[in-house]
Amino acid sequence: MKTAVVVFPGSNCDRDLMVALELVTGRAPIALWHDDKELPEELDLIALPGGFSHGDYLRSGAIAARAPIMREVIAAAGRGTPVLGICNGFQVLTEAGLLPGALMRNAGLDFVCRDVKLEVVNTQTPFTSAYRPGEPVTIPVAHHDGNFQADSDTLDRLEQQGQVAFRYAEEVNGSARNIAGILNHRRNVLGMMPHPERVVEPAHGGTDGRRMFESLFSAFA
């Protein structure tokens, strides 16, 4: 399985994501720079990591979403290549228009950094097939702008079309309908605020994130 992680100035979870991908796929991901003009051929996954790209200036993910590499990421997503955005990566995906809605300042205004309980809502995706439907999992969050908002028509559509991948099982940041992660209509793009790459081996204190990478691996191995 051939994977790539896009690094923006200010990304800080890129290394953890690469370690998690290599652990599960057995192959080190290719690191791409925001200013790269083209993607390696035949990628099975493009992952956008967490962090504070461009200092979160203007809006979280806004500048990164207009980086040269993102034109290629958007084109690849259009061809069906799986794209995973975690935390700041999720913010970049909404800013780039690959996912609907927006991630706003947490309702409590605090930066939230702790383990949270989630429900896996949709397991019929290449990202979540190794989970059980409705399964409770614990994955950490660490964000200031994770409050997912969209108009009610969009929220209804996301729910009716199976585009909600993860829901918070507790109050975290004020997100509409407790949405923690969403898919595009084609289900090849997933954005989520929790950090699965931070819980992939027992020494991390949990392994509930590992099956996301195993799901992807089994889809492409």
Binding site: L58, A62, R66, E95, P100, G101, A102, M104, Q149, A150
Partner: peptide, 8 residues
């Protein structure tokens, strides 16, 4: 294109 996010 950039300065505003017209979703919100």
């Amino acid at each position: 294109k950039l300065l505003a996010n017209t979703v919100i």
